[in-house]
């Protein structure tokens, strides 16, 4: 069973359904949207352009050096922290 995690940060680049998020701690991580994610690839460029803080809920498949996004929302301004299980 994969563990679901959450991270807050800013999306710095997007390619198709893949994007790089820099967390509040300055750690860059590669993500890809799951088919069940609430946004589509065409929504990502706007998030890159606006540099909005987002909260990403993800899991990490064992055979992939990237995280799969299950949920993504605008971050609560009060929320901080790299990972909450």
């Amino acid at each position: 069973m994969m563990q679901t995690r959450t991270v807050d940060g800013i999306i710095t680049l997007a390619q198709e359904s893949r994007f790089q998020l820099v967390s509040d701690q300055g750690i860059a991580k590669l993500f890809m949207l799951a088919h069940s994610a609430p946004i589509e690839p065409q929504d990502l460029p706007a998030l890159v352009g606006s540099r909005a803080r987002v909260t990403v809920t993800y899991d990490e498949p064992p055979d992939l050096i990237a995280a799969v996004v299950r949920d993504i929302r605008y971050a609560d301004s009060e929320t901080k922290g790299e990972s909450r299980s």
Partner: peptide, 10 residues
């Protein structure tokens, strides 16, 4: 790198 493609099945 350019296409932000992850490594898989490493």
């Amino acid at each position: 790198e350019w296409n932000a493609l992850p490594a898989d099945d490493v």
